[in-house]
Write a protein that binds this DNA or RNA. Sequence first.
DNA 1: CAAATATATGTAGTTAACTACATATATTCA
DNA 2: TGAATATATGTAGTTAACTACATATATTTG
Lengths: 160, 160
Amino acid sequence: MEQNVIDASGLLAISTRLQRLSDQIRKDGLLIYKAFGIDFQPKWFPVLYTLYKKSTMNVVSLSDEIGYAHPSTISLLKELEKEKLIRSKKDKVDTRKRLVELTEKGTALLSTMEPVWDVIIKATAEIMNSQNNLMKAINEVEASLKEKSFLQRAEVYIKK
Amino acid sequence: MEQNVIDASGLLAISTRLQRLSDQIRKDGLLIYKAFGIDFQPKWFPVLYTLYKKSTMNVVSLSDEIGYAHPSTISLLKELEKEKLIRSKKDKVDTRKRLVELTEKGTALLSTMEPVWDVIIKATAEIMNSQNNLMKAINEVEASLKEKSFLQRAEVYIKK
DNA sequence: CAAATATATGTAGTTAACTACATATATTCA
DNA sequence: TGAATATATGTAGTTAACTACATATATTTG
């Protein structure tokens, strides 16, 4: 698929390449933790990191925070509960809510991970700080899509 | 998940957002084709477009071209064959190879799609041409990762 | 030239997200 | 205040990619 040009396959090309890049980045993350002797699944990260920062959260807030649909979060929580890295309790005020928090084992794991983050941050910065900053580009694209969707933009041209 | 900062969750955050963006873009693509009354699955696009441009290809070259693992291509080809949009024949020189090409119906479909591409190109350009060009940013990141992998970069910091 | 290696295709099973639906509890408002 | 609506959680099934493995044919090499 073309490298530089926005051609007719542009949309899907971008979508595909974003996905592949995302995949590669995730795999590299796994390798880095392994290099530190930390056996840990990168997909757990958003949940664990969020709980580390915020202590206790219910399922929906957690999902919103990490940007996943709630069933995805639930299935991650199931795995993490099996690993005894998190535990849940009922919210006494709103009994619909399940409050989730790190166990001692979970907190301990996150502590061993902290030194790695610095390395990851540095390596990420190294890669991101090229001429066109990927993170900023994503932000900009998300912002313009929020302002006016792709379809709406296309419609302007369709009507001509 | 944070919006601007490369924090400890940076890697995965980027990965997640790339995926979500990719998803949204794909869905919008579907809507645009629908707006033109073309019933068509965006995931078919890379295969169909490549065959439209290159006439005939075998499975592996096609996979390389669109950047998919070959089993993914095979399953797309199965769907497309069922839709009678493509057909296959054996390569007489290298009998291992299966040569794939568009049927008349496939070519016809691609012709009805051509006018849409122009709209897509324009709308895509509109979105991409912000300060940090997403496509260029992806290219740059891919290039720097090719030059020196994430893990290798991280290792430099680990060894200190 | 035949044995070892490489390439092309195909199948089976996995993964990590999703949507749609179901149920229980809380909140709102007529 | 109770009926309608909204929110929180959970389950089931889907999707679109992947990896690992299997087999057939070509190519290379000792």
